[in-house]
């Protein structure tokens, strides 16, 4: 009869799915059409070698810059999710500090070319070998594996948008002041995601697969934090003077 559960109607789920999907498309940094036009231009071998020859700190600084650019789009995405701006400012900061990089990793599957195992980076598509100078091969492998797994689900933009919002609105983040309000928002987002997956006749296991992605995302973020502190131990001045301020604020 159109009632999904006493608190949330089908119409409300459709509305939420529409708003989140629109927010995602407005802030996704790269539209799929743009990406298709770029026809997966891979870096040439000499370009790959020039990245590999960069000093470690220079490559780190470049990657920190690219991550920070992507995070700024995620902040804009969050601001457009209805309910997010009604949260107290403390909780908005907590959710973005913990979740913005996770959404960046989710969004990476949109710019991942599974045929060549390459990812859009610095104007072309780069394989893991481009990032050798970072000295974080295990993290890079995990990032590429995650992008490959996510892209193998072939999620629509609407499904990706709702999953991104679901991850961002994690009620289990520490330091939340109004956990209950975040929980309510996350539950509604999950219901909207389930509703869209059913509407798109996705097979049942997709939601469970997406739930498993949440722990993979947490592990990617802690790997990133470990690598950053190891790097900063060797190059404290580089981080302080050359890394983007927002990056230092979030991960410092």
């Amino acid at each position: 009869n159109g009632e999904t559960s006493p608190t949330v109607s089908m119409a409300e789920l459709d509305h939420l799915a529409h708003v989140v999907s629109k927010s995602h498309l407005e802030t996704c940094q790269y539209l799929r059409e743009e990406l298709q036009q770029m026809n997966c231009q891979n870096f040439l071998q000499d370009e790959v070698e020039s990245y590999q020859k960069k000093p470690r700190e220079v490559m780190w600084q470049l990657c920190a810059l690219k991550i920070t650019e992507a995070i700024q789009y995620v902040v804009e995405f969050a601001k457009r999710i209805n309910g997010f701006m009604d949260l107290c400012q403390n909780d908005q900061i907590v959710l973005l500090k913990a979740g913005s990089l996770e959404v960046v990793f989710i969004r990476m599957c949109r710019v991942f070319d599974s045929h060549n195992n390459t990812i859009y980076f610095d104007r072309k598509f780069a394989g893991p070998d481009v990032f050798k100078a970072l000295g974080c091969d295990d993290l890079i492998t995990s990032v590429f594996d995650f992008a490959k797994n996510m892209s193998s689900l072939h999620l629509t933009e609407e499904e990706l948008a709702l999953f991104s919002a679901f991850v961002l609105l994690s009620a289990d983040r520490s330091w939340l002041q109004d956990k209950l309000q975040v929980e309510k928002l996350q539950q509604k987002t999950q219901l909207a995601l389930q509703h869209v997956l059913q509407k798109n006749q996705r097979e049942d296991g997709v939601l469970n697969k997406l739930r498993c992605k949440v722990s993979a995302l947490r592990s990617l973020c802690s790997q990133h934090t470990e690598k950053l502190s190891a790097f900063r131990a060797i190059y404290p001045d580089i981080v302080r003077t050359h890394f983007p301020p927002l990056y230092k604020e979030l991960f410092g």
Binding site: V75, E76, R80, I93, K97, E249
Partner: peptide
């Protein structure tokens, strides 16, 4: 937390362009 995250706080305050 707001004190330690001035940039993020500012981004959140900016109107959604």
């Amino acid at each position: 937390l707001k004190e330690k995250h001035k940039i993020l706080h500012q981004l959140l305050q900016n109107s959604t362009s």
